[in-house]
C-alpha cells in the first residue's frame, strides 16, 4: 500500500517535471521579445536591454527554466511584464474566485448526479428512468457558457433574483460571495451532472448484474437495501475515475464561464495576459492549472485505495 502511494507520488513528480518543461518550451518559442513589446517600438535599445536584464531574459534558457521552477517551489512566480507586480500575488487573488467556483460546481454536480443516476438505474426502463435519460441527454449537449447566458437572462435580467455578474469579494461576507458564485456554479454543474448521472447509472447497472448482488438478495436483503449496501460502493469505482476527469473540465469550464459573469478569476487574468503578451503570467497560470489537474488525479488514486481493498495489497 505504501509502495502504491510512493509509486503514484513519484509519477506525480515526474508528470509535474515534464509538464513544466513542455510549458516552458512552448512559451519560449513564442516569437517576439517581451521587453521590447512592453516598452513599445520607440524604446531605446539600452532601456530594452536593462529591462531584459531586470526580467532575467538575458540569461541562458536552461538557467531561466531552473530559476522559474525553483522560484515556483518557493511561491515566487516572477514579476508580471505588464503590471510589474508579483505574479504569485496576482494569481492568488484570482484563485480565490476560480477554485471555490470549481469546487462549488463539483460539489453541486456530484450531489445532483449520484442520487439521480442511482434512481434511474434502480428504475431501469420505467418512466422515471426514461425521464432522467432524456433530461441528461439534453444536458450533455448544452454548452455550459451558453447555459450560463440563459441563466443570466432568466434569473438576473428577467426575475432579478441574482446580480448579472461581478464579484463583491470575500471581504463582503461569505454569503455574498457564495451568492455571486451560485449562478456560475449552477451553469457549470448541471451539464456536468448530466454526464455524471449517466455514468453513475451505467456503473450501477453493471454492478446490479454481478453475482454478489444475487448473493445479497439471496440473503434476504430487499432490492433497495441490496443496492444501497452492496451496489453503491462498487459503482463508485468507475464514478471516481470520471470525477477526477471532471474536475479538469470544471476548472476549464470555470475559466470560460468567468467571462459570462465578469468574474475576476484566473480566466480574466489569463486572457488579458494573452492579449498583452504578458507571457510569464500565462506560463504560471497554465502551470498552476496543470498542477491542479495532476494533483486531483493523485487524490483520486488515493481515494481508490480507500474504496477498494484489492489495491491495498495483501497483509
Amino acid at each position: 500500500m505504501i509502495q502504491f502511494v510512493m509509486r503514484r507520488f513519484l509519477s506525480l513528480i515526474a508528470a509535474l517535471a515534464v509538464s513544466s518543461v513542455v510549458i516552458f518550451l512552448v512559451i519560449e518559442v513564442a516569437p517576439g521579445d517581451p521587453a521590447s513589446f512592453m516598452l513599445g517600438i520607440n524604446a531605446q535599445p539600452d532601456t530594452v536591454a536593462a529591462l531584459r536584464a531586470e526580467l532575467g531574459l538575458d540569461q541562458p534558457k536552461l538557467q531561466r527554466y531552473v530559476s522559474w521552477v525553483l522560484g515556483m517551489l518557493q511561491g515566487d512566480f516572477g514579476i508580471s511584464y505588464t503590471y510589474r507586480a508579483p505574479v504569485g500575488q496576482m494569481i492568488a487573488d484570482r484563485l480565490w474566485v476560480s477554485l471555490p467556483l470549481a469546487i462549488y460546481a463539483l460539489a453541486l454536480s456530484t450531489l445532483i448526479a449520484i442520487p439521480v443516476g442511482a434512481y434511474a438505474a434502480a428504475r431501469r426502463g420505467r418512466a422515471g428512468d426514461m425521464m432522467v435519460m432524456g433530461a441528461t441527454q439534453l444536458g450533455v449537449a448544452v454548452p455550459n457558457f451558453w447555459f450560463a447566458m440563459l441563466l443570466v437572462l432568466m434569473f438576473a435580467i428577467k426575475l432579478q433574483w441574482f446580480s448579472a455578474g461581478g464579484f463583491p469579494g470575500w471581504e463582503a461576507g461569505l454569503g455574498q460571495g457564495i451568492m455571486a458564485l451560485s449562478l456560475p456554479a449552477i451553469a457549470l454543474a448541471l451539464p456536468q451532472a448530466a454526464i455524471l448521472a449517466r455514468i453513475m447509472r451505467s456503473a450501477l447497472l453493471d454492478v446490479l448484474g454481478e453475482d454478489y448482488m444475487r448473493t445479497a438478495r439471496a440473503k434476504g436483503l430487499s432490492r433497495p437495501r441490496a443496492i444501497w449496501r452492496h451496489g453503491m460502493r462498487n459503482a463508485m469505482i468507475p464514478v471516481l475515475t470520471i470525477l477526477g476527469l471532471q474536475f479538469s473540465f470544471l476548472l476549464a469550464g470555470a475559466i470560460i464561464i468567468e467571462q459570462v459573469f465578469y468574474l475576476p478569476g484566473l480566466g480574466r487574468l489569463v486572457f488579458q495576459a494573452i492579449t498583452q503578451r504578458d507571457l510569464i503570467v500565462v506560463e504560471s497560470v497554465v502551470m498552476l492549472l496543470v498542477f491542479t489537474v495532476i494533483m486531483v488525479n493523485f487524490l483520486v488514486d488515493l481515494a481508490y485505495l480507500w474504496v477498494d481493498p484489492r489495491l491495498r495489497g495483501d497483509g
Binding site: 454481478e210 453475482d211 454478489y212 444475487r214 448473493t215 445479497a216 438478495r217 439471496a218 440473503k219 434476504g220 436483503l221 452492496h230 460502493r233 462498487n234 474504496v307 477498494d308 481493498p309 484489492r310
Partner: peptide, 19 residues
C-alpha cells in the same frame, strides 16, 4: 430468503462483495 432458504452459487470468485 436467507432465513428459511439459503443459497450457494457456482462462482465463488464473484459471489462475494469484493469491497
Amino acid at each position: 430468503r436467507g432465513r428459511k432458504i439459503g443459497m450457494i452459487f457456482q462462482e465463488p470468485m464473484s459471489a462475494l462483495n469484493p469491497l
